[in-house]
């Protein structure tokens, strides 16, 4: 069984982003970029499925400008076998990403597709669910445990009330939550080896997908800042402030 993993290039999670002065977007010039943390978890899960003998090949795909190839190489260093880069000028909207991925699914016929639950830049949390709809597959979103049992996939999901387990028919889409696994670090020899692994470049036109604009970003602003607070010297002072100043207790 082949596993397809979608990975996105995003701002490093440690960086606090700033809004551009003209309010058109955030400023990503000279900002450290990385593999979206949820995608890292997705790659790790796919590699573990392969190591456990449940999968035979791990293919990673990323959509966006040329620089995405760095993140594909990172995924290859973590153990994926081959990469596909779909080159676009900017990272497209989730629905467009899902349409492109649906074409890749049609060509590659994976048994499982793993995505992150959320991009930490757009905070969309959409693409996996959309891909599942477009390909007619079931979806195991926010997964914290995955096991292949008798040709079906058991997925434990992190939901608001606790945990829920579903059995999905294969092929299926999974989106990862934080507790699914702890991704490994790529070792230097693996990083070297990854440079030689195959990486195919395609365009949306090659896949027969025309990208449409479904939403328009009108403005990006900095959030309201909080008034700087004070330090209290003791628990007594804290209680006094909460009672008499903030009046919340």
């Amino acid at each position: 069984m082949k596993v397809l993993v979608a990975v996105k290039r995003v701002i490093d999670y440690n960086v606090k982003v700033r809004v551009k002065a003209d309010n058109t977007d955030v400023d990503l010039a000279n900002v450290k970029m990385a593999l979206n943390p949820f995608c890292e978890i997705a790659v790790e899960e796919a590699v573990r499925l392969k190591e456990a003998g449940a999968a035979t090949e791990v293919v990673v795909v990323s959509i966006g400008p040329k620089a995405c190839q760095e993140q594909i190489r990172t995924a290859l260093a973590l153990g994926a076998d081959r990469g596909i880069h779909i080159e676009t000028d900017t990272s497209p909207e989730s629905l467009s990403v899902a349409k492109l991925l649906a074409k890749v699914v049609e060509q590659e016929q994976p048994g499982i597709v793993i995505l992150g639950k959320q991009s930490i830049d757009s905070d969309n949390n959409q693409t996996g669910q959309m891909l599942a709809a477009l390909t007619g597959m079931p979806q195991g979103t926010f997964a914290s445990k995955v096991s292949v049992i008798d040709g079906s996939l058991n997925v434990t999901r992190e939901v608001d009330g606790g945990l829920q387990t579903l059995a999905l028919k294969l092929p299926a889409v999974i989106t990862t939550d934080l507790r699914l696994n702890e991704p490994r670090y790529a070792k230097l020899p693996d990083i070297m080896k990854a440079k030689k692994k195959p990486l195919e470049v395609k365009t949306p036109a090659d896949l027969g997908v025309e990208l449409r604009e479904h939403t328009r970003l009108l403005k990006v602003e900095a959030p309201a800042t909080r008034q700087a607070g004070i330090k209290v010297a003791s628990v007594d002072e804290l209680v006094e402030k909460l009672k008499n100043e903030a009046k919340v207790i």
Binding site: L95, A98, T127, Q129, A133, T141, H214, T215
Partner: peptide, 23 residues
């Protein structure tokens, strides 16, 4: 925008061939 809503709405949007706006 609960885990239910987040799980369901993108799937509906894709079936209708429209975007979904989150949160």
């Amino acid at each position: 925008a609960t885990t239910n809503g987040k799980n369901l709405m993108p799937r509906i949007a894709a079936l209708l061939d429209v975007a979904q706006i989150s949160d």
